[in-house]
Design a protein around this nucleic acid. Structure first.
Length: 310
DNA sequence: TTTAGTGT
């Protein structure tokens, strides 16, 4: 089996905790992934396909100059929208909200060295987690849903990516930008490590485009059949994703394009696990999420995918 | 440095 497929199996196939390097677990992970990818991802009607409505509804956040924000959203979404379900645009990021699961389908950001550099004027401790009142109360997540759940309110667009001013940072604290994440061992550790890696890409690439979101992946149960199973928390039944993806496009100074794509399970992950092991082919995420990422870029235009020349 | 929840 190719190394790429083997690597893919880590992120996609396993709900196991513990040692990632044990041969047996690799094989188990692979067998789960194998049955997912070969038997189901290619079937029409596979239940993981996301719901993407043709009805586009822009709901820009209140702003002083709408042209400035419209231009910024144009920059952020330069390479296309992954889907058009319940779009919300904020000053420095843009998302599609899944009303059924009370978690975004995807969140898009455009990062530069300037936008992520340290800024003494911005303090995340001054930002409050707050419900987005623009979402109908039937479908909104509230702070009380997360309280006592054992899960973090994990940012999809990371606060650390929006340090140009306090307002940008504050807006990342809307609960539309949150998902229930395992705290210690995931959000505060390996997922944070991945976020820092993406920020670091801005040191080498002038423009970085980052799309982040949840996955709800099937797992083989004891009867040998595949089921999608996920916890929901709070009075609003906020879904706890089984996995999260991050797919990144980097523009080089000479206008070449490279892509990296990751899937990580929403569980405790050993801090020593190299991020490289969570890389997957971008198509794998697209099939699982029911979304097309960066569809204004033909994949042949990419000079590298996951560090490998194509 | 950044990621957070809980207890006071």
């Amino acid at each position: 089996m190719s190394r790429l497929v083997l690597i893919s199996s880590i992120g996609i196939g396993s709900w196991q905790t513990g040692a990632y390097f044990e041969r047996k677990k690799f094989q188990q992970m692979f067998s789960d992934f194998d049955c997912i990818s070969k038997k189901h991802f290619f079937k029409p009607g596979f239940p993981l396909m996301g719901t993407v409505s043709a009805a586009t509804a822009f709901s820009p956040a209140p702003i002083q100059d709408k042209n400035v924000t419209a231009n910024r959203i144009g920059q952020i979404m330069k390479y296309g929208f992954p889907g058009f379900d319940n779009i919300r645009s904020y000053d420095d990021f843009c998302l599609s909200y899944d009303r059924r699961n009370r978690v975004a389908h995807w969140v898009f950001e455009h990062l530069t060295a300037e936008s992520v550099k340290h800024n003494d004027a911005v303090d995340r401790s001054k930002s409050d987690f707050k419900p987005d009142e623009s979402v109908h109360k039937f479908f909104r997540s509230e702070n009380t849903d997360y309280k006592g759940s054992g899960f973090d309110r994990g940012h999809l667009a990371a606060a650390g990516n929006h340090k140009q001013n306090q307002k940008y940072c504050d807006q990342t604290f809307y609960l539309t930008n949150m998902a229930p994440q395992v705290g210690k061992g995931f959000n505060r550790d390996s997922w944070n490590r991945l976020e820092r890696h993406v920020r670091k890409l801005t040191k080498a690439y002038p423009n970085v485009y980052c799309c982040t979101g949840p996955l709800y992946l099937p797992k083989k149960e004891s009867d040998g059949k595949l089921y999608v199973k996920y916890q929901v928390i709070g009075a609003n039944s906020v879904a706890v994703p089984t996995h999260f993806y991050k797919i990144v496009v980097m523009e080089t100074a000479d206008n070449k394009l490279e892509m990296e794509a990751y899937v990580m399970p929403n569980q405790v992950i050993d801090d020593e696990t190299p991020l490289k092991l969570f890389q997957v082919p971008p198509e794998t995420i697209e099939r699982a999420a029911g979304l097309l990422f960066f569809d204004k870029i033909q994949r042949q235009q990419l000079s590298k995918i996951n560090g490998k020349s194509i």
